[in-house]
Structure formats: C-alpha cells, structure tokens
Computed example of a mutant assay.
Amino acid sequence: MNEHQEKVDRLVREFGGYWGPFEMLAALMEEVGELADELLKVEGVKGAGEKERLEEEIGDVVFALACIANYYGVDLLNALEKSVNKYQVRDKNRWGEPDEDIEG
C-alpha cells in the first residue's frame, strides 16, 4: 500500500472502518457524478465552474477508489502503472494529437 493509501486507511479506520463493497461502489459512483457535474461547469456547459472545485472532485474520486483498493489489498499506483503500460501498447496508434488546451 502506498503512502497516500495508508493515509486513507488510517482515516477510515479512525472513523470506524470500511463500508461494505457495494456501499463503497455507490460512494464512488456518487463522486464520479459530482466530478461530471463540475466538469460540465468548468467547460461552460452547465453554469460556471472553478478549477479548484474540479480538483476537489477528482480528489474525492481518488479517495473513494483508494477505499475500494485498500479493502481488496490493491496498490493504486501499481494498478495505474499497469494501466498506463496497457494503454501504451494497446492504444499507441489509436489517439490523435494531444489537446492543445491541456496544461502540462
């Protein structure tokens, strides 16, 4: 477990422990919905949004994922690394040029 997952683990245990798998999945889905709502605002589709709120919602999604990963003993950074490697091989010719609006 990486250091960020350990922080999540300590906090969750301090609050009484992990929820069941389906409750954690529901929490993740709720956070993804809030992220979608904020993204729509930032992109001007639904009112006005702020990058700080978008960052907060991304953090909430990662927190919810960390809870699920911790529950099942999955290292998030290792899982991400495997996904990056998978996309590098599988999708190397699939995507076009990077979006110029993305800040690096």
Rank of each mutant, 00 (worst) to 15 (best):
G16M: 09
V12G: 02
L76E: 07
N70E: 04
E6Q: 14
D91Q: 14
A79G: 02
D99S: 13
K46A: 10
E3A: 10
V32R: 10
G59Y: 08
G20Q: 11
A69R: 01
E55N: 11
E23H: 01
E31I: 02
V62P: 00
G17Q: 08
G73N: 04
E38D: 00
L54Y: 02
I68V: 04
E81V: 03
E103A: 08
L77Y: 15
M24N: 04
G47M: 05
G104Y: 14
M1T: 07
Y87G: 04
V8H: 03
V32H: 03
G17T: 06
A36I: 05
I102E: 12
D9L: 07
G17R: 10
I102C: 05
N78E: 14
E52S: 14
G47I: 03
V45T: 04
M24Q: 14
C67N: 07
E100R: 15
I68P: 00
R94H: 15
I58S: 02
K86W: 14
M29E: 12
R13D: 02
D101H: 10
G33C: 08
S83V: 11
G96P: 11
G44R: 06
V32G: 02
E34P: 01
A66Y: 14
K51P: 00
G47Y: 07
M1R: 02
E52K: 15
A48Q: 12
E38V: 07
D101Y: 03
G49H: 09
